[in-house]
Design a protein around this nucleic acid. Structure first.
Lengths: 115, 115
DNA sequence: ATCCGTTATACTTATTCAAACATAGCGCAT
DNA sequence: ATGCGCTATGTTTGAATAAGTATAACGGAT
């Protein structure tokens, strides 16, 4: 599930000790949360499973915390869901994003608003 | 002249139609503005003249506006100063950066504040 | 037993990005 | 006319990143 309504006139990400969390992970984790599957999420976002899985792995290593708990096999082939840590990170980023959006929308100057 | 005091727990840049303006250009243009020379600015920032000049050129092309007006030759070898557009862009970015800093500092959550 | 959709990972290839190297011209000072 | 410090680019090299290919294993459903 993609997060709609975000302003596109800037980009922002969280960064700590080389670990980053931005739009890419936000969309990916949101989609996984909604669909319960890395594979289905990757298709929804138009990327390969390999790419999605790799993003998650790198992020988990950099942040030093598990982000997605998975299960292989079973009726549906497997499933995936977010860890509480991932939920918190996601929530924090979304809030940051919304606040910055609000600020940017009120910015004067043609480079931001097109005016 | 480097801008001190910026929060390092996130990164942000302005982005419009593929044109971006972030920390790199902010530092570079600020330095040029203070020193009146691309060459001296590049040395102050620890990068090559080629790199600094390239950054400026790419940015000017992407944004579609002149950022630095230069002069070659003369007693000092040459000089460089910012265009009004560059000044405005720089000012806008610094303001955005300060506002977001203020917001981020008040954010709860261990991923941002370390708590 | 076989099939299906999924997680999981190694390996290869392509693309992008950054840094370094090399040259040339300009204009004032001496 | 020579030198100095600067602007201005082309070219090349290397490194980091992204994208793609291939394969294996798992576990329920049929």
């Amino acid at each position: 599930m993609k997060i709609p309504g975000f302003n596109t006139e800037y980009k922002i990400w969280l960064e700590k000790n080389g670990a980053i969390f931005g739009d890419g992970l936000c969309d990916l984790l949101s989609s996984i949360s909604g669909l319960g599957s890395i594979s289905r999420a990757s298709r929804e976002l138009g990327m390969s499973y390999r790419a999605a899985w790799g993003k998650i792995r790198v992020a988990e290593k950099k942040w030093g915390i598990p982000l997605v708990v998975t299960r292989v096999g079973g009726a549906a082939g497997g499933w995936a869901k977010l860890t509480p840590e991932a939920d918190e990170l996601l929530k924090t980023y979304c809030r940051l994003r919304q606040e910055v959006d609000k600020f940017v929308q009120n910015l004067p100057g043609k480079f931001i608003t097109g005016r």
